[in-house]
């Protein structure tokens, strides 16, 4: 194997974040900007979930017949999985609000260009 699952996850997360930041900074289309921000958020979530990975570990469900000692030594860490669910909900809400604002701005100005709507000469400054 070239790299283990955790390293691959962390590398993918880093790539998503870098691509996302690049898109947010350099893309002018507001919808594309929001998609790029989604990349950043997804990268952060993947990063968080990768923290709970345990090489060769099992899912953290205590089944009949398992000894407590064995379960404690082999189960993956459940906390990041619980946290990432909350984070996904927050990300979805934030994205929904951003898209809602873009729809209003499009109806008002007939454009979704960031430089036109959010540029220095605009009131939103």
């Amino acid at each position: 194997m070239i790299m283990d699952t955790q390293s691959a996850s962390l590398l993918t997360a880093s790539s998503l974040i870098i691509i996302g930041i690049f898109g947010t900074v350099f893309l002018d289309n507001l919808i594309k900007k929001v998609i790029a921000l989604g990349f950043v958020g997804d990268g952060a979530n993947l990063f968080l979930i990768a923290m709970g990975y345990k090489a060769g570990g099992i899912v953290y469900i205590f089944m009949p017949g398992m000894s407590r000692d064995w379960f404690a030594q082999n189960a993956s860490y459940p906390l990041p999985f619980a946290l990432v669910l909350t984070s996904i909900v927050i990300g979805a809400s934030t994205m929904a609000v951003m898209l809602g604002i873009i729809i209003v701005l499009y109806k008002r100005h007939g454009s979704i260009s960031a430089s036109k709507l959010l540029g220095d000469g605009n009131n939103g400054k």
Partner: peptide, 13 residues
């Protein structure tokens, strides 16, 4: 609306 979106984009990072 413009200010809110700007704030959210910065917050998105």
């Amino acid at each position: 609306y413009e200010t809110a979106l700007k704030y959210m984009i910065l917050g998105g990072i």
